[in-house]
Design a protein around this nucleic acid. Sequence first.
DNA 1: CTGGGCATCT
DNA 2: AGATGCC
Length: 749
Amino acid sequence: MLFEMDNSEDEMEEDDTEWKNSFTDSAPLSPAAAAAAASGSNLSKTPTPAHRVILHFDLDCFYAQVEMIRNPALRDVPLGIQQKYIIVTCNYVARQQGVTKLMSITDAKEKCPQLVLVKGEDLTHYREMSYKVTELLLSYCPLVERLGFDENYMDVTEMVETRLTQTVESNNYSFKGHVYNHSGADAKAADHPRLALGSHIAAELREALHSKLGLTGCAGVATNKLLAKLVSGAFKPNQQTTLLPENVSDIMGCLSGLRKLPGVGHQTTKRLQALGLVSLKDLQLFPLTDLVREFGGPSAQRLKNLVLGVDDSPVTPTGAPQSLSDEDSFKKMSSTKDVLEKIQQLLNSLVERMHKDGRQPQTFRLTVRKYSATNKWFSRESRQCPIPNHIGQKITSGSGDEALVQLVPLAMKLFHKLVDTSSAFHLTLINVCFSNLQARGPAASGKGSITSFFTHSTSPAKTQILSSQSQDNSSQSGDSHHVDHRFSARSMITQHTSQKTVSTKSPSSSEAALRGFKRKQSTVVPLEASQLQKASCSTVGSDPDETNNTVTYRLPPNVDLEVFRLLPEEIQKEVLSPAYANSLPSSLMTTTNQSTPAAVVDIPHISESTSLLCPPPSKPVPQSFPDSQNLTDRKEAVNKPDPSDRATTVNHQQPPGTSSVSGENMTEEGRSSFPRSSDCEFPVNVDPKVFSELPLDVQRELMSEWKQQKPVLKTPASRKPGRSSMTKDKKSAGKSSQANNLLNYFKPS
DNA sequence: CTGGGCATCT
DNA sequence: AGATGCC
């Protein structure tokens, strides 16, 4: 968008000249020289080479591309990816008709009534594809840094030097793709052999992305990250651009405002504006000392550098993520029960992701966003706590269900630190996060290895990163990285295919969907949809023979009379309420069905019957790739747009009223047959309030533990017993701790 | 009627 | 723990 009118140098010329003057005034050195000089302050191990060749890759409308790969029928229709009420991105067919990123659904429909919408709130597929991209790049060169899901920086300086020494003169030294502010053969590659080679590498990598992953994208080639990023968008989509040092001032001059600089966000822009600084030139001419006063030394200097196109920051290999989180936003969440269900839902998928990652989280964090009239927009608040080892191990060992059972109370405790539930509250977002991720393998480390993210559950794979590239010439270079593919992306692909065909022991999405149902033992073979349906709706009756066996308690999580009698009266009521019944295990399965104004065309990604009978969870979506049948299904649906001519939503949602009947039945039955009881015997440390908010199955699990006196606690509970009062003082959560005592989670805080 | 993740710095 | 920034 910034540079779409790039090659027009007509009226730009005057401003440019003026701008250049100011540029050279404040920066006597060329940008490259300035960068080299600035790098002196960088104490990093390897002083950044004076001449770096940095690539920036930016995939075209990434989410839309992924969806079009999953369903090729979407390629030719205007497609928007919907999150809540927003089109987060859209394909180019839609853009042609005026749809833009971050446009509201309403506006998008006006612009483009035929717009096909796909829900994109579940990032699973995007995340997976995103890492495939990074892995592919990593197979060429270890210095790859991710920026979001759809962008990657790459430092190919070494590759370039290698090619430079070996290609002798044979190369014609032409540039691949565009050269910024040069038209065609204008650019003399001989003057910039490294950048020219960089453009070749970029072209090869883009081709690899296309042939191996089916993705298109843009690339920028420059001498630092800032410039590479700025120039990569000069020609869109699916093109690449190289920025030569002599054109740095050109591209900087084209920036319409300081906000366009990567690293300058809303807040920084405001603060700069308060100083009277709006244009790049304003900032260039602003005295550094004054800037230091406002922003401090490092930030001030960095701003000064940015505005000159100077950026000595290294390409830092991203490796596996340092935290995994899952969140959902909504208009209003005001009951503890809803919070509990949401936390369950979020944790469920997060635990599964964590397990696939293979590392063990040491810290758990819960974040909420509270609605407030004044501060409607932001203000998130969070509380975090350590994760006891025995719980963390259950995540990595695959006992996700048991981990879940213990994590939910933990999360609820944090929730009560954040929210005073005795008075009304109004949340608009909940986020759960695992951080402080600890690699399991003793020698797993491998610097910045992204490997652990892909090779779940296996022994620490060798660092699959090739430090130096093959010398084979350009014709071969596309394949030279093939060697270790099996370590990385391949493993994920294998997972996909194996799921389709045979039952597999690797954690599948089907199995994930069962989580919370607590079926007998480990259900390896995915169940039929009808079975799932049965399980979720038939759990209300009596509990025939489900006794004891605390470790693997089974489903259906029926009401255990014995346990139920022990519950406080208000919980009994809550449990018996229809809403709660619906929320029980099935709550883990139902997606939060935010009302979609648009017409809905149900185009299941799994199979129609599955979707109708038992809607998949919104987070862990079974990822069978489109087979022929699904393809035809979707095509059919897409080709039959809603006659109403309104926008069309493609999703898989639960048909209304699927699970309500049995719940109400249960209400009647339960109310009449179960006695009220006030004699609940909790262990001293248990906070009844917290306990009461747990779902039945969780309560039962805990009760069983307590009964069996087989506590997880290692140390005698000689602790000062928590007051069992219902009062909540939010302040003193102080020293409540025997670290490994599950009961501690229930102590009133 | 502004999403869902991630990172870094303080 | 919060603020800020990026996509």
